[in-house]
Computed example of a mutant assay.
Amino acid sequence: MSRFEDLTYRFCRIGVGISFLVLILTVLTQVLGRTFSSSPVWTEELTRFALLYMVAFGAGLSLRSGDLVNVDVVCDSLPGRWPWRLRLVSTVMTAVLCGLLILPAWKYVSIGVMQTSPAMLLRMDFIHFTVFGLLVTLLLFATFRIYRMVFAGEDGKADIREELE
Score class of each variant (00 low, 15 high):
residue 62 S to K: 03
residue 62 S to D: 06
residue 63 L to E: 07
residue 64 R to Q: 15
residue 64 R to G: 07
residue 66 G to A: 10
residue 66 G to I: 10
residue 66 G to H: 07
residue 67 D to Q: 15
residue 68 L to A: 12
residue 68 L to N: 13
residue 68 L to Y: 04
residue 69 V to D: 12
residue 69 V to Y: 10
residue 70 N to D: 12
residue 70 N to G: 14
residue 71 V to S: 10
residue 72 D to N: 14
residue 72 D to G: 14
residue 74 V to K: 02
residue 74 V to E: 07
residue 75 C to K: 12
residue 75 C to Q: 13
residue 76 D to L: 09
residue 76 D to I: 05
residue 79 P to L: 09
residue 81 R to M: 05
residue 82 W to E: 02
residue 83 P to Y: 03
residue 83 P to E: 05
residue 84 W to K: 03
residue 84 W to S: 01
residue 84 W to A: 00
residue 85 R to Q: 10
residue 86 L to N: 06
residue 89 V to I: 15
residue 90 S to Y: 05
residue 90 S to V: 12
residue 91 T to R: 02
residue 92 V to T: 09
residue 94 T to V: 10
residue 95 A to V: 04
residue 95 A to G: 06
residue 96 V to H: 07
residue 98 C to F: 06
residue 98 C to K: 01
residue 99 G to I: 03
residue 101 L to Y: 02
residue 101 L to T: 03
residue 101 L to K: 06
residue 101 L to C: 11
residue 102 I to A: 03
residue 103 L to M: 03
residue 104 P to E: 05
residue 104 P to G: 09
residue 104 P to V: 04
residue 105 A to E: 04
residue 106 W to E: 04
residue 106 W to S: 04
residue 106 W to V: 05
residue 107 K to F: 07
residue 109 V to N: 11
residue 110 S to F: 01
residue 110 S to L: 11
residue 112 G to N: 05
residue 112 G to W: 03
residue 115 Q to Y: 11
residue 116 T to S: 06
residue 117 S to D: 08
residue 118 P to R: 06
residue 119 A to G: 14
residue 119 A to K: 03
residue 119 A to R: 04
residue 121 L to Q: 08
residue 122 L to Y: 03
residue 123 R to I: 02
residue 124 M to K: 10
residue 125 D to V: 00
residue 126 F to T: 05
residue 127 I to L: 10
residue 127 I to W: 01
residue 128 H to I: 00
residue 129 F to C: 05
residue 129 F to Q: 07
residue 131 V to M: 11
residue 131 V to R: 03
residue 132 F to Y: 11
residue 132 F to K: 00
residue 133 G to C: 02
residue 134 L to C: 15
residue 134 L to I: 04
residue 134 L to M: 15
residue 135 L to S: 05
residue 135 L to N: 02
residue 138 L to T: 05
residue 138 L to N: 06
residue 139 L to S: 00
residue 139 L to W: 01
residue 140 L to W: 13
residue 141 F to H: 01
residue 141 F to Q: 00
residue 141 F to G: 00
residue 143 T to F: 07
residue 144 F to H: 10
residue 146 I to Q: 13
residue 146 I to T: 15
residue 147 Y to Q: 13
residue 148 R to D: 15
residue 148 R to H: 11
residue 148 R to F: 08
residue 148 R to E: 14
residue 149 M to L: 12
residue 149 M to R: 11
residue 150 V to C: 13
residue 150 V to N: 12
residue 150 V to Q: 10
residue 151 F to K: 09
residue 152 A to N: 13
residue 152 A to Q: 15
residue 153 G to M: 09
residue 153 G to D: 09
residue 154 E to D: 12
residue 156 G to E: 11
residue 157 K to A: 10
residue 158 A to W: 05
residue 159 D to K: 08
residue 159 D to A: 08
residue 159 D to Y: 05
residue 160 I to V: 13
